[in-house]
């Protein structure tokens, strides 16, 4: 159709600028762009496999009551003879242990890689390709941009963290009905823990992404931060014999914070390797909080220097 036959139509009324609409627009579109390509989508799909595998294992185990009781008695150091003997608090502890292991150890690794896949490019690519200019001419604030980008990264990470873990918890509750009631409160806790985990990772990767003009640089920096702090933590802990040095590790601090969400007490009967008795939730929260604040400062400074108010 020739363009000259088209007529420009003025809008009847103008919507006022809306921060929330801008935030969701950035979250939607940048989230969709982050998932573009076979690798990001494939990673999201592969990350669901452990949930299926663990659910099958739970199903097989629960076919035999004694096998489950053996696990429960082993973890809680008790001697229950049937499901009906197990108190609700113990079911909760066993289930929270399952959730903790799934979200921090199994899905945590997928989320670590996923954070780089979905987050490293967010700010870096905007700066590299001058895409940032499309935002600065719009009636949005720097906080809208940052929150929108956070949503774009958090969404796939939540899918990685919560869906398989929740699926396993659901399977355990379905196959052992006695555990369902005491574990109900674990579902909102799981969601909150997933949001906390994903958001902290997203804030840190956005801060890193705003440092340079290349997503490759951001990816490398992210993994260096993650694994170097782990390695230093292990070396210091081994050489000094003092587990307080686990506080150096980004991963260990995240685990401590998540353990508090799940109300785990690893020193009462549950055989967990983290957190260590030598550092508390407060110190881990302080370290992660400072890192998150620094990351937010970096990304906001970069965005404001690009003239977003």
């Amino acid at each position: 159709m020739p363009i000259l036959e088209q007529v420009y139509r003025r809008l009847d009324h103008h919507e006022p600028a809306s921060s929330w609409r801008a935030v969701w627009a950035i979250g939607d579109q940048c989230g969709a762009m982050a998932l573009k390509g076979w690798f990001p989508k494939g990673w999201l799909a592969v990350s669901q496999i452990p949930g299926l595998v663990v659910a099958v294992i739970i199903y097989v185990m629960t076919r035999n009551e004694s096998t489950v009781l053996e696990v429960v008695n082993g973890m809680a150091r008790t001697g229950y003879q049937s499901f009906n003997d197990v108190p609700g608090e113990t079911w909760y502890r066993v289930a929270s242990n399952l959730v903790y292991a799934m979200i921090t150890i199994v899905q945590g690794w997928f989320a670590t890689v996923g954070t780089a896949i979905y987050g490293a490019r967010q700010v870096a690519d905007d700066l590299r390709t001058s895409a940032f200019e499309v935002y600065v001419a719009r009636p949005i604030w720097s906080r809208d941009y940052v929150i929108g980008k956070l949503i774009a990264v958090v969404k796939p990470l939540l899918f990685i963290l919560i869906v398989p873990t929740g699926f396993c918890l659901l399977a355990a509750n379905l196959f052992v009905p006695a555990s369902a009631g005491p574990c109900l409160k674990l579902y909102p806790i799981l969601i909150a823990a997933g949001i906390a985990y994903a958001t902290l990772n997203a804030i840190v990767i956005l801060g890193i992404s705003s440092l340079g003009k290349s997503s490759r640089y951001a990816t490398i920096t992210w993994f260096v931060l993650y694994f170097l702090t782990m390695a230093v933590s292990v070396i210091l802990t081994q050489s000094t014999g003092d587990s307080v040095w686990e506080i150096v590790s980004y991963r260990a601090n995240l685990q401590v914070i998540l353990a508090s969400f799940l109300r785990l007490n690893p020193f009462e009967n549950l055989d967990l390797e983290f957190p260590s008795p030598d550092h508390s939730l407060a110190s881990s929260a302080l370290i992660i909080g400072c890192l998150a604040a620094l990351s937010l400062f970096l990304v906001l400074r970069r965005v404001r220097s690009g003239r977003l108010p």
């Binding site: 103008h14 919507e15 006022p16 600028a17 809306s18 609409r21 801008a22 969701w24 627009a25 950035i26 939607d28 579109q29 969709a32 499309v134 935002y135 719009r138 009636p139 949005i140």
Partner: peptide, 17 residues
């Protein structure tokens, strides 16, 4: 998507944008 996103950034809701 590009044009629609710019509309949403300017205050339009998703469908109208």
């Amino acid at each position: 998507d590009y044009v629609s996103m710019m509309g949403r950034l300017s205050g339009l809701a998703k469908r109208p944008a």
